[in-house]
Design a protein around this nucleic acid. Structure first.
Lengths: 187, 187
DNA sequence: TTCATTTTTTGACATTAGTCAAAAATAATT
DNA sequence: AATTATTTTTGACTAATGTCAAAAAATGAA
């Protein structure tokens, strides 16, 4: 729990009051490799903080699993669309490694917002960072070649390559596994 | 101004107090087709609400202009990365049509956040909607073919095709103008 | 270690989309 | 209406990436 609290400082420093309120709302979960945090078709009602471990979000397309994001230590994860809209998720969230997570429900989060302006501020600021991240991924996806995207990954988040099966990385980069394998062999 | 205020209700209903405070902070601007709201290299310190008209964000790559987003009536626009981080913008924002805009500075916005929790809430909720939009564009960019992306555009935002030169639409979709022209001819 | 399973690589070929240059069509200006 | 500029389309060709099938390598279990 201390882990989560001290990570939040990267977004915004909370008062002791707010910190205490937060503490009371997060619940620890620990799950093993291969297990699911969420199955497609279910509404995702929880926001998770990933203290340690790794997981992926993927959906099914013509029988293939398309991994479109990963979560690692200190990431907040959820099926964002489902969590916000309350609609069923189109994606699955599956553990790639045994992980320790802290979860909070949407209702609890909204109660915290009502009680503590500063918590809503923290989340507002977190959104800004996550938005910028996504913008960057979008520009990569749309305007960079497969090779450039791989080089970007190597430069910016090489840990992904070390911890995740190649097939998942390939769809994360939006290229076929074979092409990724060929690009890799040229390095 | 009434236009802006009544649009905000789509995100969150503000008290009269908050509405009044907002009113005092937004300034009207009116610009003609082809003019610039922002040039690359400058820090974007303003957030704009586009009451009427159209504009685009683009950056230069090997002498070509890559349009990566559009703004239309009722959109909030800014160079998000620059506005949030305070770093120079990599993009230009140019009017595609004569437009009426309302602008607010980052400092003013932060003052409003401090004075009115509910305004920060409104923005938090707006971020959620904009994030979900971007997620959708990302998935399209990464996992759909040029033709599918065009079909999506036709179905979801056909006004773009009617109001924007084809060259801009092409890079918005992440395809060459020639390919877009060919896809279009098949409809 | 050995066998079975999963993951990664390689090869041959198909498909998609990009590039460059020129023609055609539109729009803007005189 | 005539001329110029801009935008869009078309053609021929190239480059990038995907697909399918099989081989090789790595991993895990017995």
């Amino acid at each position: 729990m201390q882990h989560l609290l001290s990570h939040l400082i990267h977004y915004y420093s909370l008062s002791n009051q707010a910190n205490d309120a937060l503490q009371g709302c997060f619940r620890e979960t620990s799950l093993g490799k291969g297990e699911y945090l969420l199955r497609e078709g279910k509404v995702c009602r929880q926001l998770y903080f990933l203290q340690s471990g790794a997981l992926r979000g993927y959906y099914n397309l013509d029988g293939k699993e398309i991994t479109h994001w990963f979560g690692f230590e200190n990431d907040f994860v959820t099926s964002f669309h489902s969590f916000i809209t309350g609609e069923p998720a189109v994606e699955n969230i599956q553990l790639l490694e045994g992980s320790i997570l802290w979860s909070i429900s949407k209702e609890q989060l909204e109660n915290l917002f009502n009680a503590h302006h500063e918590i809503e501020r923290l989340v507002r600021i977190a959104y800004e960072k996550y938005y910028i991240r996504l913008e960057e991924r979008f520009v990569n996806a749309q305007f960079k070649s497969a090779r450039e995207r791989y080089e970007n990954l190597l430069g910016q988040t090489p840990h992904i390559l070390e911890r995740v099966p190649l097939g998942c990385v390939a769809s994360y980069l939006g290229i076929s596994q074979e092409t990724l394998s060929r690009i890799r062999s040229q390095f």
